[in-house]
């Protein structure tokens, strides 16, 4: 049971950490100043949630690992984030497409987790759900603006959506850990979130004059099977702790 809770909490934390890091890569590169700040802020929200989840995961595991140990001293195969969040930023349209699909799902997960029997997860979710509401709206507004914009912005938004869409089935696939956590009243019924997610995503795509892709990729990030992208990203994210173990400032 504790193993499942550790695994489950790690997934939540890693989703936030990896996507937060991806968003931070935009700092200084966003198309406009407002977006540079926005992407940094979105990343910071996720990083804050990652810290809470990873600190708790370390406590549940009981081996004395801190949030930093978990973030900086694990190899790619030990990460439990869904594959969607490790996908490269691509252009701004692709980043917004990834964020739309993720925030649309994650906010539904957090809503369920506010009712979790696990009081720590419920508390982090209660805080997070309000923050992610901004993420969802931000990504949806940009998707509409770009999708329903110029020919070029429409083309890019549609292509960004195609790039990441295939990774969405993983979001709703229940495995042993998800089922155990659902039975214990701790976790969310991921499969049951699909209709609500479909509805809200479709509403945005219609408004944005974008086509809903149908591509599907069999991804298993949350079981630790990752694309090469994660390794490259970690080599940068973990560089300092790897080169100078225990370094602090």
């Amino acid at each position: 049971m504790a193993d499942h809770l550790f695994e489950y909490t790690l997934r939540l934390g890693d989703n936030c950490l990896i996507l937060g890091q991806r968003l931070a890569e935009w700092t200084g590169h966003a198309p406009i100043l407002e977006e540079d700040l926005a992407l940094g802020n979105l990343g910071l929200d996720l990083l804050g949630q990652a810290r809470a989840f990873l600190t708790y995961a370390g406590k549940v595991e009981g081996k004395g690992r801190s949030e930093d140990d978990l973030a900086f001293l694990r190899d790619a195969h030990a990460f439990r984030n869904v594959s969607l969040v490790e996908q490269p930023n691509g252009d701004f349209g692709q980043t917004m497409a990834r964020h739309l699909l993720f925030a649309g799902w994650y906010s539904l997960v957090l809503e369920r987790l506010t009712q979790s029997q696990d009081s720590t997860l419920a508390a982090v979710a209660e805080k997070g759900v309000k923050e992610i509401a901004y993420h969802w709206r931000h990504a949806a507004e940009w998707t509409i603006r770009l999708g329903d914009g110029t020919d070029e912005s429409h083309r890019r938004m549609q292509s960004g959506l195609h790039q990441v869409w295939g990774y969405t089935p993983e979001l709703f696939r229940m495995d042993e850990t998800d089922t155990a956590m659902l039975r214990a009243g701790v976790g969310a019924d991921l499969a049951a979130l699909q209709p609500a997610w479909d509805a809200r995503i479709d509403a945005v795509l219609v408004e944005a004059s974008l086509e809903r892709p149908s591509s599907v990729t069999r991804s298993n990030g949350k079981q630790g099977v990752h694309s090469e992208h994660l390794g490259h990203m970690l080599s940068e994210m973990q560089f300092l702790q790897r080169a100078y173990p225990g370094m602090e400032w």
């Binding site: 407002e34 977006e35 700040l37 926005a38 940094g40 802020n41 979105l42 910071l44 929200d45 901004y134 709206r137 931000h138």
Partner: peptide
């Protein structure tokens, strides 16, 4: 509203 995100997490522009 110019942007929902500002110089700090708590402020919008």
């Amino acid at each position: 509203r110019v942007s929902a995100f500002g110089a700090t997490a708590c402020k919008a522009m």
